[in-house]
Simulated scan of single mutants.
Amino acid sequence: MTNILIVDDDIHILKLVEVHLSEAGYQVFQAQDGIKALSILKNHTCDLAVVDVMMPYMDGYTLTREIRNEYDIPVVLLTAKNQIEDKEQGFQSGTDDYLVKPFEPKELLFRIKALLRRYDKKQDESIIRVGNTIINRKSYEVQIGNQTILLPLKEFELLYYFLSNPMQVFSRDHLIAHIWGLEFEGDERTVDVHVKRLRERFSKLTEDFHIKTVRGIGYLLEAKRS
């Protein structure tokens, strides 16, 4: 079930939003200030936050910045103000959307659904599945069956790039430019060392992919078809 956090010091707004979101099939968590909201986020996985601007202890702009610093979830700001300066401050704090009170609960639902679709797409793009292998760019983890592998950063980025572009041949110079950057002062042997390490790590763990040498050019990754 999708969890939505509602943060507003107006109990009537909390109740109104909870009723409509619950009817739409969402699990709702409520907080009347930013401190309580952060406590809920720490103890529960929430998929989206609806945040009022004017609240005691911590205003909605500050709370939005705190959420953006710690969690990768969309935020909708609620406010009684409709000035362009207030909207600008809201988007500068990191909100994804903005809704002015009074609002129609159905409009809030439409906006929530649109944001969740957008973030689902973003999440999908960060995860690659090949056979029983899952590589997650957000957590920098590689999972093969029940085993989770943490790689050094450059090995992870190299593997992620290969898996994002299966059956494409890349020269060593291209890989250095993409993974290490144009200002990298090493040489192409760096690529060879990292490929060797990836092969040693995964050759006995999975048949889902193989990194092959293309003589005179560089490397390609051959991935198992689903």
Rank of each mutant, 00 (worst) to 15 (best):
N82R: 13
D120Q: 14
K81V: 15
N69V: 03
K113F: 04
P74Y: 07
L109Y: 01
L77H: 04
K42G: 07
E66T: 05
P102E: 00
N43I: 02
Q123T: 15
E107K: 03
V50K: 01
D96F: 05
E104T: 04
P102V: 00
A114W: 08
P74Q: 10
L38I: 12
S126T: 08
E104L: 13
K122Y: 08
D96G: 05
M55H: 14
I112W: 09
T95V: 14
D33E: 05
G34D: 14
K36E: 07
K106M: 12
K87Y: 04
G94W: 08
Q89E: 11
N43K: 13
D47T: 12
A114K: 11
I35M: 08
F103Q: 02
E88N: 12
E107Y: 07
E70P: 00
E70V: 04
Q30N: 11
I128M: 03
N43P: 00
A49R: 09
D33C: 00
D86C: 15
A49N: 08
S126E: 11
I84D: 02
Q32N: 08
V76L: 09
R111G: 06
N43T: 10
E125Y: 11
H44F: 06
K36A: 13
M55N: 12
L109F: 06
Q83G: 07
E104V: 07
Y57I: 06
I67R: 01
V51W: 08
S39F: 12
Q89H: 11
D97V: 10
K122S: 09
T64A: 03
G34L: 09
I40S: 05
H44P: 00
L48R: 02
L115F: 10
E104N: 15
Q83M: 13
K87R: 15
Q83E: 14
L63T: 02
V75G: 08
I112D: 06
S126P: 04
D59Y: 00
G94H: 04
E85F: 13
Y61P: 02
K101Y: 14
I127R: 14
A37S: 05
Q30D: 02
G90V: 09
G60V: 04
L78N: 03
M55T: 13
L109D: 03
Y98S: 03
I128E: 01
P56S: 04
A114V: 13
D97K: 14
K122G: 02
M54K: 11
N82G: 15
P105A: 04
A49P: 00
D96S: 10
Q123V: 14
E70T: 07
E107V: 11
Y98C: 15
Q123I: 15
F91Y: 15
S93E: 11
E66G: 01
R68F: 07
D59I: 01
D33K: 01
